[in-house]
């Protein structure tokens, strides 16, 4: 009798777990269009099929500027492998952005969000710097608040797995 009840309980548990798993839905990344420093518009959804790292930063944010060479190195090593990096600055004055980029040059596109349409209204970013990793289907896989070491092995492995279309989450 006890064994029978145990089996029913275990079966119910497994069924509920399967149902919960089936109901899991990844958070879809909000689409946005922002212009870069040359006025060229960039739309997030244009990069569907690629892994996208969206990095929010500001020239006044020391940690952001310290982080940028690491992100730039990551971009240089992976840009031909289906990885896109978009730097989004929330600076109001473009001269501050240009000054920061003169001191810390990056080769990935830097987009301007001086009204906070993406930072506050769409992504409600809670700290600087913040990096959001979006998979090839346009789902948010990770959010990192604070400085990230983009040469970290576990992070690069995670991104590589997203490139291969695996979601280890």
């Amino acid at each position: 009798m006890i064994i029978k009840v145990s089996r029913i309980v275990i079966a119910a548990f497994l069924a509920l777990t399967a149902l919960a798993g089936a109901g899991y839905a990844a958070e879809k990344a909000f689409d946005f269009t922002l212009t870069d420093l040359n006025g060229t518009p960039h739309r997030l959804s244009d990069f569907q099929g690629k892994v996208v790292l969206v990095n929010f930063w500001a020239s006044w944010c020391r940690e952001c500027v310290i982080e940028m060479p690491s992100l730039n190195g990551f971009y240089a090593a992976n840009k031909n492998k289906g990885i896109v990096v978009l730097g989004i600055t929330i600076d109001r004055k473009i001269e501050n952005v240009l000054d920061a980029l003169r001191k810390t040059p990056v080769s990935y596109p830097v987009l301007l969000d001086s009204r906070g349409d993406v930072f506050v209204k769409k992504y409600t970013v809670l700290g600087l710097p913040t990096t959001i990793i979006i998979d090839r289907e346009g789902n948010i896989q990770d959010r990192f608040i604070g400085r990230v070491d983009f040469s970290d092995k576990s992070l690069t492995e995670k991104i590589q797995s997203l490139l291969k279309g695996r979601n280890d989450r």
Partner: peptide, 15 residues
């Protein structure tokens, strides 16, 4: 009104 939005807004402000 939103606690998250207002915190995000504050983060958005320059020093």
């Amino acid at each position: 009104r939103s606690r998250e939005k207002i915190i995000s807004f504050y983060q958005f402000l320059t020093p």
